[in-house]
Write a protein that binds this DNA or RNA. Structure first.
Length: 118
DNA sequence: TCTATGACTTTGG
DNA sequence: CCCAAAGCCATAG
């Protein structure tokens, strides 16, 4: 094949999102990193914005590095948090969840230290 | 081709 | 804890 763009940054991000297990989350920066573009967190968000929640992907499992959702100002209200809570994700009164415990890493990109929980 | 945009991140006050 | 500014880079027009 001639110069086939293997997969756009966009496609890689969406593929990763599709693989996030229920009750787990990934951050924009993490998606960018695993998509091969460390530092392109904003673009990961740009890709998600293009979905506008009209996708079959578990878009609600993508949150920011602070452990909070970034869709409040977009007309989603607190829908994302509710969707995540229905999957078992707990948010504190500040609207943050425990990233250290809930952030998911694909097996092939698992961090060196698989911190065992509990 | 160039400019503008943005569901981010990090750092500093 | 809250707020502001700078850095970041793929997409859209």
């Amino acid at each position: 094949m001639t110069s086939t763009p293997e997969a756009s940054f966009r496609d890689r991000v969406l593929s990763l999102v599709a693989r996030i297990p229920e009750g787990r989350v990934m951050t924009y920066g993490q998606l960018a990193l695993l998509a091969g573009q460390p530092g392109a967190a904003r673009q990961a968000g740009y890709v998600m914005n293009a979905l506008m929640g009209g996708s079959d992907l578990p878009w609600q499992r993508v949150i920011n590095a602070q452990g909070r959702v970034s869709t409040h100002k977009l007309g989603f209200g607190d829908m994302q948090e509710r969707l995540l809570m229905s999957e078992g994700v707990a948010f504190d009164s500040s609207g943050r969840c425990d990233l250290a415990r809930l952030q998911w890493w694909p097996p092939e990109a698992a961090p060196a230290s698989p911190e065992r929980l509990l």
